[in-house]
Amino acid sequence: MSQILDKVTILEPMNPNKSTALFGGKASGILNWNDVAYPHFYTHREQIRALFWRASEVDMTQDIKQFPTLPEKEQAAFLKIIGLLATLDGPQTDMAARIAQFSTDPSVKSVMATIADQESEHNHSYAYVLSSVTTLDQQNESFETGRKDQILLKRNERIMQVYNEFALHPTIENVLKAMVYTALLEGLFFYSGFAFFYNLARNQKMVGTSTMISYINRDELQHGRFISDLFRAALAENPGNNTKEFTDWVYDQFRHSVEQETIWSRYVLDGVDGIDLVEMEGYIQYRANKMLRMLGLSEIYKDHPENPMKWIRAYVDNFDDTKTDFFEQKSRQYTKTSDLNGFDEL
């Protein structure tokens, strides 16, 4: 039976400052970054904090003018995808906080607090975008997508089950499963939606929205890196959970998630000019392979070791301008409203 986790007390001075375990261990609650169990978590913290931005600093002037001129199919996809992103990002603020509540390691709590703040801004950004380009009725309808759209409800069934199971029954096994789905969310579930906005941008449409999406994308890449590291470390600390049964469960979730993401992309993107649905399916499988490697597992989609949608690389950030397995392209510079120059660098 998997170890049941208790909410961690805030301050226990009799315990050591360096945590004895990520989950289910002991720690004083005093965070000394020079004496932590996983020193490289500090690098994650600094990288995530370096990405600070606010939705209100992105210029939406041209988007306000352009949205009514978009073809009906693009307007509908725009609103549905914003609804999808809000459905996924909204719970992430809570999920980050809940993982922090059950982690014994104060360095994990610190990083998760930063992630939670960024996820909150992501959710705010969707409301900011919609309030800029649509009526209040359309805004509210878009945010209802996650509650009413049957394709989206089916798509999100398993993540809802895994997240709620962790919330109701916090065990080592369930926090590991929640981290798998957090990695899937950060590294796979958003990506057909991101591609839609990047496709608009390469046609000089809705550039402000796409710029906002690129900042969210950049954040999610960093979140995915940290969650993957945390998952691998927690699994190493709990070898009793590192079983063939659990590994098979992870692979099954990836296959199911790819299937659902593919169904969603066909549903929402069919007929959108510039989107090749066959390429999109390959891109989804490519993203799944990358996330599996991040979690320490093997690729399962052998036909897509490389990104089939080469054009999207211009919109995906690469931190520090270095080529790595996870971050691929030159970073778009963060520019505030006062000096926004569009996409001249692309």
Rank of each mutant, 00 (worst) to 15 (best):
L88C: 14
A97V: 12
R49H: 12
V111F: 00
N140I: 15
S132Y: 00
Q101V: 14
Y128P: 04
I99S: 11
S56Q: 13
S103P: 07
A86K: 08
W53N: 10
D35V: 08
Q92M: 12
F41Y: 09
P39A: 07
Q62Y: 06
E72Y: 04
I159H: 13
A116Y: 02
F52N: 08
F67Y: 02
Q47Y: 14
Y126V: 00
R49Y: 08
A77I: 04
E144A: 13
K80W: 09
E157H: 11
I99P: 12
P39K: 04
S125T: 07
A96T: 06
E57K: 09
T104D: 05
E46N: 13
T93Y: 09
Y42P: 07
K73W: 03
Q62D: 11
V162R: 03
A97T: 12
R45C: 07
Q150F: 12
R147A: 14
F41E: 03
K148W: 07
K148I: 15
F143K: 13
A116S: 07
P106M: 00
I115G: 03
R147D: 12
N164M: 06
V58G: 07
F78P: 09
A86F: 04
I99K: 07
R54S: 11
E74N: 07
M60G: 07
S132W: 00
I81S: 04
P71Y: 01
F78I: 05
A50I: 02
Y42I: 11
N34A: 07
L88A: 14
S56C: 10
M160Q: 15
Q66C: 08
Q47I: 13
D137N: 04
D94M: 11
L152A: 02
M95V: 15
V133H: 02
A100V: 01
P68V: 02
K73C: 05
Y42N: 11
D117H: 10
D117E: 06
H124T: 04
E72R: 05
S110G: 02
A77F: 02
V36M: 11
E141V: 14
E121H: 01
M95A: 15
A37N: 09
Q101C: 13
Q118D: 02
Q161G: 10
F166S: 02
T135F: 05
V111T: 01
A97W: 12
D149I: 10
A37I: 08
Q92Y: 09
N164L: 10
D35C: 08
S107R: 05
K109Y: 00
E74W: 05
G146R: 01
D63P: 03
Y163F: 15
N34Y: 10
D89T: 09
D149P: 08
W53H: 08
Q62F: 04
K65I: 14
L84D: 13
S107Q: 07
E119G: 01
I159C: 13
A116W: 02
A77N: 06
H44P: 05
Y128C: 02
T87I: 11
T134E: 05
E165C: 04
P39M: 06
K80A: 08
V58Q: 12
Q139K: 15
L130Q: 00
I82C: 08
R155E: 03
Y126L: 00
S107V: 04
Q150R: 15
R158C: 09
S132L: 01
H122M: 00
Q118R: 06
